[in-house]
Simulated scan of single mutants.
Amino acid sequence: MSYLDNLENNLKALESREERDPEKIKRELDAKAAEREAALRAAPHADALKTSPYTQKFLTACRTIGHGQRTFVDFRWSGTTLVLEAKGRRLELRPEADGIQAVWVEGGEEVCTEPVDLSADPQELAQKWLVA
């Protein structure tokens, strides 16, 4: 048996031992359960974000302001998160367990966050994001 074959067998043995590690399996199961619990708590807010008239009014306000600035505002859904991009900046409306958060992202880093009230005027958030 060559050195490389022996090394390969040793690596496979280590990987299989790692896969059977009960502590690692328990940590993975706990992490999955926590993710599932967070998704269940955020689900009502995600549904409200997708079906709320606030969302349509907000998108309309962003497009109107963008048009006035000769800026294209692109938006898409990424899972339950509404992502808007314009002028090299990004705004994400993320449903979370305690409500919906507006997250400003510039250069790939989160700059600031603030809660979103779906009963408020969406024009204010659009102005704050695009005019600032």
Rank of each mutant, 00 (worst) to 15 (best):
E8D: 13
E8Y: 09
E8M: 11
N9W: 12
N10D: 15
N10I: 14
N10W: 12
N10V: 14
L11V: 15
A13T: 14
S16V: 14
S16M: 12
R17G: 11
D21L: 02
D21Q: 00
I25V: 15
K26Y: 04
R27V: 10
E28H: 07
L29A: 12
K32S: 14
A33W: 01
A33L: 12
A33N: 09
A34G: 06
A34H: 04
A34Y: 03
E37N: 11
L40R: 10
R41V: 09
R41G: 07
A42K: 00
A42C: 05
A46V: 07
A48Q: 05
T51H: 07
S52W: 00
T55A: 04
K57Y: 03
F58Q: 05
F58I: 06
C62T: 04
R63T: 10
R63K: 08
G66D: 03
H67I: 10
H67L: 12
G68Q: 06
G68W: 00
Q69S: 08
Q69H: 08
T71D: 09
T71Y: 02
F72H: 08
V73R: 03
R76Y: 07
S78P: 09
G79M: 01
T81N: 09
L84D: 05
L84H: 04
E85H: 05
A86Q: 03
K87C: 10
K87P: 12
K87Q: 14
K87W: 03
G88F: 01
R89D: 13
R89P: 12
R90H: 05
L91C: 05
E92C: 10
R94D: 10
P95G: 02
P95R: 03
E96K: 09
A97D: 04
A97W: 02
G99F: 01
I100Q: 01
I100C: 03
Q101H: 06
W104A: 09
V105G: 05
V105R: 01
V105N: 03
G107T: 01
G107N: 01
T113A: 11
T113L: 07
P115F: 02
L118E: 04
L118F: 00
L118P: 08
S119I: 09
D121E: 07
L130C: 01
V131A: 05
V131D: 09
A132Q: 13
A132Y: 08
A132T: 15
